[in-house]
Design a protein around this nucleic acid. Structure first.
Lengths: 107, 107
DNA sequence: GACTTGTATCGACAGACGTCGATATAGAGG
DNA sequence: CCTCTATATCGACGTCTGTCGATACAAGTC
């Protein structure tokens, strides 16, 4: 990001991912999933911690999935979600550069 | 983020910063500023690259400022903007952990 | 002071977003 | 097959957001 200006297409794609992170409920969902044992969590464990309804949680999980930040799988009655580390790593790397102006990260 | 669930207050604050990154124009503005010589750019250089009006660019710059991602200073007729690296580094660090599950980053 | 250029603010509008209650779908178990 | 639990989808509602044109403000120049 600090090396060269972001292209228009790249900016559109990246902004979609950041938009998925731009809601407090979704951020907490993501961190609940990521910090959960085994790196995955059942939806039924993700409803209690919030003051919003079950359909709203389901909506937010869908947004995270469609942004490519998480994925899920049904196992019997339950659905389990996990974070996609590569997506987060990509965003992290994008923001990282400006913070270390003197550090040679190359190679 | 992977260590422990994000608190409600922290999530609200962080989501505000991510929201500032959730628009393609703002992402490109930020990268234009960051990649500009000297790490800062005059507003007059930030209008040409976009298809939106000058008031819209001014609005987006204000959003970046209010999110704590950038700051500005007037010098005579012109106003210069620069990125606040610490803010980006904080977001970067938050997203970084899940990407390196086996790497010991501690110490 | 009048004029010009650079930047910010204002008011309006269309579209997107977060939320809800109601309801549909999926699978397990009687 | 009926029921129960878990999850997703639907339709509606109020609010927030990105955009614009018009205009205000700031600073330099004549």
């Amino acid at each position: 990001m600090v090396r060269e200006p972001l292209g228009e297409d790249a900016a559109v794609e990246l902004s979609r991912m950041f938009k998925a992170l731009s809601d407090p409920v979704r951020l907490r969902l993501l961190s609940l999933i990521a910090s959960h044992e085994g790196g995955e969590a059942c939806v039924c464990e993700l409803i209690g911690p919030f003051d919003v309804s079950q359909p709203t949680i389901s909506h937010h999980l869908k947004v995270l999935r469609e942004a490519g930040l998480a994925d899920c799988e049904r196992r019997g009655t339950w659905v389990y979600y996990w974070v996609l580390p590569d997506a987060l790593a990509r965003l992290s790397g994008l923001l990282q550069a400006p913070a270390a102006p003197a550090t040679v990260v190359g190679a």
